[in-house]
Design a binder for these strands. Structure first.
Lengths: 341, 341
DNA sequence: TGGTTTTGTGTTATCGCTAACTCAGCTAGG
DNA sequence: CCTAGCTGAGTTAGCGATAACACAAAACCA
């Protein structure tokens, strides 16, 4: 099968231990032998087996990263950030994609444990992820939650200011004269969705606008189509909203599709704002008014927190990092249109 | 540290072998013992150690996937597709991000070998990846190239029709009356870039338009800024192009930025087409005329090819899959504008 | 009822590597 | 010249799991 250490040893005419010493750069090897071993390694294309090494050293040099959807531009950037920091620290990132499915999340967490990752970064599916965290605790695997928290969780966490961000977005719409503002949210299972809904309510309350439940509809996080359907439902209300706040950058795609389908122009006929930017899209065509979260930084900081913990440099039980978002006003909210009554 | 099989065995009052049998669903375990062992497993939160299992079974249940940039929407979809198929087949995907850096690619390939992945999916950085493939060969690790090939490579490969696709895009522009068509490409190190340039030349030749080297500029694959600079250089030519063909969906972002910076409207002042769609952007705002490759399918098919090989179902040395792209005409090419002279 | 098969469980060796120990041979100091 | 100390190797054991074998006890059949 694959080239093993013993083959290298035989070829170089030494013992396996000596090969190991060469690989691990032990100083106690004569130059002559080192050369022979290195030549044999290069010749055979030998690559050490980490399973074996990990088994004995109890270290694999791997971190796990579990996200609900790699195709979501937010998480894509989280991945890139995490990968970058991990690589510099000599770690690997094993990425898993749960498709927001709690069973898969469970499966992947076990898989990561099984692979003996040294730590885990997790953007949990939602509240029901709680039992999954227990397994991590029992096995003493350090982990950091990203983006979303879970009721009662008191470990490391990197998140954005969803309440404040949502409130600011909605206040922006209110400032432009909108009174009927719809919201396309996702399941309250997810903490960011709850927080953004809370921010939405706060903004309304602060402006003295009554909260109308019929203006808030839920869509699936991974399926653009459901946001599309929710938006159509909002637009078909007897008294439809004049503006829509989308809970994230995935749902807003459905919102735009629905508006187009109804022949409504953004922002002239309906204003749109959302949480999270869409990286390439916003550079190609800066159009959406968004609360742009520093997604890559979510990844880098969370990884840093995890690495600190692995290095045993950390005492505190919990470290909470809240990253501010950038409020970016572009066309879609209609800020440059004449204000409403 | 972590819970081991022996602890489970002790707790259940059986031998380690019996625990192993329960885990592997061997039928030769009495119900009574099975119950006790399962209770102990649940109680301790035990998760088997794959390193140990992999070491003895010579199987890890993991596939490696190495891409130049996870944040590139094309590769993001490849990842999703690969992950989906792998998961269904009971495999894991370990993802690595080379940032188009040959050294990192080398490092990650060794890491994957080291992790004893059973097979590898690789979207190589470019021609210089060749020595990296040799290591894979020497270690008998099956692998499939994705999207890009390498001169002289004769193993499994899943790619798009870059020559034909590029030709079609450029012929579209020519059909709209354009004669001076610029191209922002990336290094000829990458096969798709070479092929798309070839398609561009074929289209020109077929239309009897002379090829002008000054209209073809190279940009970096990972950095939008360099495409932006290249575009500015094109626009500043004494006789600037009236249309630009971007080699991919990353570069086109720089093209758009540069056009905007020069106050040029797309498509009125300059037509733009590119290879590869930008998933969310195109749904949010269908604007770019593109050759949309079925990126997710690249991932699913490549993974399928790899799984087939792992299962030993395959005889042929090489299997080549060429996936057709979808030509999508939208606004950016100006197809609905009055034609040019 | 005796012998053969089946069933349920334990024992041993081993995957590839490295920690910890061993040891021959050389060096150096008194 | 002898011993303590260092050098550059090799040897042994074991990481956590499982394949392969071993073996009682129960089940089966003639």
């Amino acid at each position: 099968m694959r080239v093993t250490m013993r083959e290298v040893a035989t070829k170089a005419g030494v013992s396996a231990m000596t090969v190991s010493r060469v690989i691990n750069e032990s100083p106690r090897v004569s130059d002559e032998v080192r050369r022979r071993v290195e030549a044999a390694i290069a010749d055979l294309g030998y690559v050490p087996n980490r399973l074996a090494r990990g088994l004995i050293r109890q270290k694999t040099g791997a971190l796990g990263l579990i996200v609900p959807d790699v195709a979501n531009p937010f998480f894509t950037l989280v991945v890139r950030g995490a990968e970058e920091v991990a690589w510099r620290a000599g770690y690997h990132v094993i990425l898993c994609n749960t498709q927001a499915d709690i069973e898969r999340e469970r499966g992947y967490i076990e898989d990561m444990l099984s692979f003996q990752v040294e730590g885990l970064l997790l953007a949990p599916v939602g509240e029901r992820s709680r039992p999954n965290l227990r397994v991590l605790r029992k096995n003493n695997v350090p982990f950091v939650l990203i983006d979303r928290t879970i009721g009662g969780y008191d470990g490391d966490l990197v998140q954005g200011d969803s309440v404040g961000g949502a409130r600011q977005l909605v206040e922006h719409l209110i400032g432009l004269g909108h009174r009927r503002i719809g919201m396309v949210t996702e399941t309250a299972e997810v903490s960011t969705a709850r927080d953004r809904l809370e921010g939405y309510r706060q903004a309304l309350e602060h402006a003295g606008i009554a909260y109308s439940p019929e203006l808030v509809l839920e869509a699936s996080a991974t399926d653009v189509g459901s946001a599309h359907d929710a938006t159509l439902a909002l637009l078909d209300l007897p008294e439809p909203p004049t503006a829509i706040f989308s809970v994230n950058n995935i749902a807003v795609v459905g919102v735009a599709e629905a508006a187009r389908e109804r022949g409504l122009r953004i922002p002239e006929d309906i204003a749109v704002v959302c949480f999270d930017d869409i990286e390439h899209a916003s550079r190609f065509h800066p159009f959406l008014t968004v609360m742009a979260q520093p997604a890559e930084t979510f990844g880098t900081i969370a990884t840093q927190l995890l690495l600190d913990r692995l290095a045993g440099r950390i005492e505190q039980r919990r470290r909470l990092v809240v990253l501010p978002a950038d409020f970016v006003v572009r066309e879609s909210s209609g800020a440059q249109l004449p204000e409403r009554a």
